[in-house]
Design a protein around this nucleic acid. Sequence first.
DNA 1: TCTACTTACGAACGCTGTTCGTGTCAACTG
DNA 2: CAGTTGACACGAACAGCGTTCGTAAGTAGA
Lengths: 235, 235
Amino acid sequence: MNRKSASARDEWAAQIAALDEQPAARKEPITVGRIVDTALRLVETDGYASLTMRRVAAALDTGPASLYAHVRNKAELDDLLIGALGKRVALPAPDAERWRAQFADVCGQLRDEFLRYPGIAQAALSAAPKNLDTLRITEGMLGILLAGGVDPQAAAWTIDAALLYVSAYTVEASLRRHPDGGRDTRVVDRAEALARLRMLPMSRFPHTVEHADKIGAGEGHDRFDFALELLLRGL
Amino acid sequence: MNRKSASARDEWAAQIAALDEQPAARKEPITVGRIVDTALRLVETDGYASLTMRRVAAALDTGPASLYAHVRNKAELDDLLIGALGKRVALPAPDAERWRAQFADVCGQLRDEFLRYPGIAQAALSAAPKNLDTLRITEGMLGILLAGGVDPQAAAWTIDAALLYVSAYTVEASLRRHPDGGRDTRVVDRAEALARLRMLPMSRFPHTVEHADKIGAGEGHDRFDFALELLLRGL
DNA sequence: TCTACTTACGAACGCTGTTCGTGTCAACTG
DNA sequence: CAGTTGACACGAACAGCGTTCGTAAGTAGA
């Protein structure tokens, strides 16, 4: 039995096997939307660090090469992901009385979205902010600040600072929580961290030792809220 | 000629070749310090994205395996790198009259150090802030803020926010400037970016279009200074 | 019915971090 | 001075990564 007849036989066997599955379905075609959805699901469960083209492809029952017909790059996929997250944040109609609260709320939405997909904020930092979905958010923020009577230049820079902060905050939070897929960032709980701070020599770290309890402090997003309020109060 | 005699001959040839180089030197031993220095030089010229164990090893005339006797991980190397940068920032003796300027100066030093080594701030975001060199900086910052009469809890959180912002700012700045080693982040100059903003439909992006010139604005570190001042003025 | 074109994908390339086992050299010990 | 021990160095390899190429398959138009 030579190669040719063997492969012909395989084909024949495949056809027979397909008899039962014929009505079940031909495989759903790959689309950008399906790729993005799959990638997001992967990030949600395993973290951004383990988001690879191969994993996405495998989740779609195919090989990595198939993705490149729909997505130029992994970088482009990253852009699409943060775009998809951006689409989800709801922009309130600017209310001059509540502009600070509204601004903080938008930032909070973004934060929660980023935290839900651990590590994805790393992509947000790399992604060009000229993404249309990102621009939609900055437009909304701009509207809120301008309605609040903030100077346009100050508003633009504040938005920039706030977005940078949100990304950094969520990246750090994700890294602290998530095993990070390979890197052995040991998660040290707060009590342990505090104990270590107290072990520092008083001679060289007087303030750190004295206020060690303040350093890791904050339930939930106290730290986040504080930073944002600081930003807004300065306006 | 069998394998054994061949390799024996190679060895013999090597010995002969070594006759001339004998006085020249035996290879300098690998140390953590040399690894860190080499890595920093690499990052300075090629960016953090192309900092790999293999490249560092190659720059030291050896194979990658040799590094793992001195450094547990790439993650640990990253920690060492940001530690080395941290060591360089000079901490002023707290002066109650000038605490804002002093704080901003420390942040500026950190920023410049990070910018000099493009992309390395990514490692700073990942690095556990319990690094001793990082702690030295936060201690110094804490001293400055406390001398300024800032509430300890507010001080701790402000430092956290400022460090996060510095990292995010420098990561973004590096990505925008540096080709990024692989990712095709096209660098669009400001005029081009502005033109694109103006192309947006007025109906959906009224504020963005109107204040497009404000969005990418700022010479040098205007944006940076603004954000930091905002943070400090809120205290 | 034949052709042109888009989509799918197996195989491969060059790169990454990391480990294992071996080799080599320096210094301490008897 | 000879012998042993321990730290250091490193070649080779593994699994995994993003990406490309050439080819196969299926669809739409002539």
